[in-house]
Nucleic acid binder design. Structure first.
Lengths: 339, 339
DNA sequence: GTTCATGTTGACAGCGCTGTCATTACTGGA
DNA sequence: TCCAGTAATGACAGCGCTGTCAACATGAAC
């Protein structure tokens, strides 16, 4: 049988309430009492009954990670970070996927979200893209008065958020290509709905312009983050007039970069000797393709960690309205100096 | 404010207990009472307080998905399946990763698992490989009297399980290659610790033997499921004497199969014209490599679904001791008829 | 009409914890 | 010396639900 607070109290010769104070690190407990209670709780392997505590405090000690069809890789890192933050605070993480994309009307979306949230007793939720900017979700959360943290949101808002500086990352990656002597650097854009798409594009443009280069229209291709769209973009970029053919292609995610490598191979171009390629995200794919992709590592784990930390923090702790986390440029084998 | 059971009871002019009976589908409630209570509960958007219910029933309405360093893709499908089954039953899924690989002694593992499980109030857990066969985990669960379902376990045991028939899948895939006219079919084994490794190997051997073919030692290579090991295996298999060079390679997972395609490309071999390749698992990678991989789709979603279903089933429902789920052979572009 | 089985309902306690408030012990200052 | 202020502790109610058990209604069997 699991030990209860009463067991500990009896054994320590104090009241339940005192034990409760110790367990919750409340003040006004004599040091030796505190120590004794702690020792006995340990000995009995006591751990509080979450349901009872929740009933008394009207909290659930649960937070939710909500997502809608993200890449498994992304979600698994966020998840890992969030769980670690939860554990430190005695919380647990429940996962809650949505498929809001199938629904047309906002009204229907709201009803769907509400139906789920009505029976999901959580103290806070982490919203991952594209949910971070989903109006229906945001509205229901506000209506039900549930705290949330938005991961990599597109638009501003009253809620706290965590993110990274896509523009600067893209700028730096472009600079790296420039430093290797490349001038004809092409860029493949991602899905237009995605917050990161325009930021990454902007970073590339800024670096090119600062280098005094004119970005011809032929150097920009539109993709949608999928492998197939990357392949199409690559064919377009590499199939033009000789003078326009890029010596480097910066794809705005790894899937598209992998597609570029694949297409280049089919066209008889050597990567990186004839064509340098780089990606964005540092997915597992980046290390599996050949040559291994130079790419930007997003602080995904840390985003999850910080987001959860903000939600489970005790009210006396400092809160942070928004956090921009550091990225890292992973130099691998798909970029070479231009000869 | 959220509605409580008392609100519903007052409004319906019945006692709390009757409302409770209706909500839990208990018998012995007059049909019209039942209907009225249901209608009012709906109207009030009432949903029970999990903590209170949990306190009264000493259940938590939570089940855990435990994993140790699996592929994100695998876990995300299992997770999705499990969540869907939970929702149907009013349960929620909490995720709990472990890193038991770093620990050496069994004792230490047991303590680690116990520390986590002591404060994880769940009604049951889903164990994914390699945890499905982890002695420490199994022991702690038994000690704490927590139900579990093992996903794709290696060894037998008293607990229910879900899995698939790796041997038959491998057998059928090999037959497919045979049907395409291949005779020199090589096989790349996976990590020796993994339950599936020997099963997949056995299926291959059975098909080869039934076809009356002698499997030369040169046709078998050892890998460990990683891309790198697959590349090494491919180099070994393709670099031998001419008469031993396979016309088809069956890699026992997709990562290794992707490596084979990559190596073949580097060696100037056309896939599938000169070399057919197939994999196992149907990861996203399989559709992203070129040519797209012929592979075996595991019923991962369904495994998660069934596992959770077994854990959340009401005690009056039928239980299943073990379930072998159907796989599917995905015919794509990496296998061709031998000319 | 009485008896019994069965169906329907409600009163009430109590799950394990924490919030509130009262009580006691102890300190330093007037 | 006495009192106020503060630290340390405990008694008790109650969070929202369900399990138990008792009460009552109904109808069949005798």
């Amino acid at each position: 049988m699991k030990a209860t607070i009463t067991d500990v109290a009896k054994r320590a010769g104090v009241s339940m309430k005192t034990v409760s104070r110790v367990l919750n690190n409340e003040p006004n407990v004599a040091e030796n009492t505190r120590a004794r209670v702690k020792a006995i709780a340990d000995e009995l392997r006591y751990s509080p009954n979450l349901a009872a505590r929740g009933l008394a405090t009207s909290k659930s000690y649960l937070i939710a990670l909500m997502y809608d069809n993200p890449s498994p890789n992304y979600i698994s890192h966020i998840q890992r970070g969030a769980i670690d933050a939860c554990r430190e605070a005695g919380y647990h993480l429940v996962v809650q996927p949505f498929s809001l994309g199938d629904l047309v009307s906002t009204d229907e979306k709201i009803r769907t979200v509400r139906r789920v949230m009505d029976r999901l007793p959580v103290d806070g939720v982490i919203l991952t893209p594209p949910l971070s900017d989903n109006a229906a979700v945001l509205e229901v959360l506000e209506e039900l008065n549930i705290k949330c943290v938005r991961v990599a949101p597109k638009n501003g808002g009253a809620q706290p958020f965590v993110g990274m500086d896509d523009e600067t990352a893209s700028y730096q990656m472009t600079q790296h290509l420039l430093n290797q002597g490349h001038k004809k650097i092409a860029f493949i854009r991602g899905h237009a709905d995605h917050a990161a798409t325009s930021l990454r594009h902007a970073g590339y443009m800024r670096a090119m312009q600062e280098a005094g280069l004119v970005v011809s229209e032929n150097l920009i291709a539109q993709g949608d983050f999928s492998f197939e769209s990357g392949a199409a973009a690559a064919r377009k970029l590499l199939g033009g007039q000789t003078e326009d053919i890029p010596t480097a292609i910066f794809a705005s995610n790894d899937d598209m970069a992998a597609a570029v490598i694949s297409v280049a191979g089919q066209m008889g171009l050597n990567v990186p000797e004839t064509l340098s390629v780089c990606g964005f995200d540092d997915t597992p794919l980046a290390r599996v393709v050949w040559p291994a992709l130079t790419t930007v590592r997003q602080p995904i784990y840390k985003m999850g960690h910080q987001a959860a930390k903000e939600l489970v923090r005790r009210s006396d702790e400092q809160s942070e309205k928004g956090q921009i986390l550091d990225f890292e440029i992973m130099l691998r084998d798909s970029v070479a100096k231009l000869k």
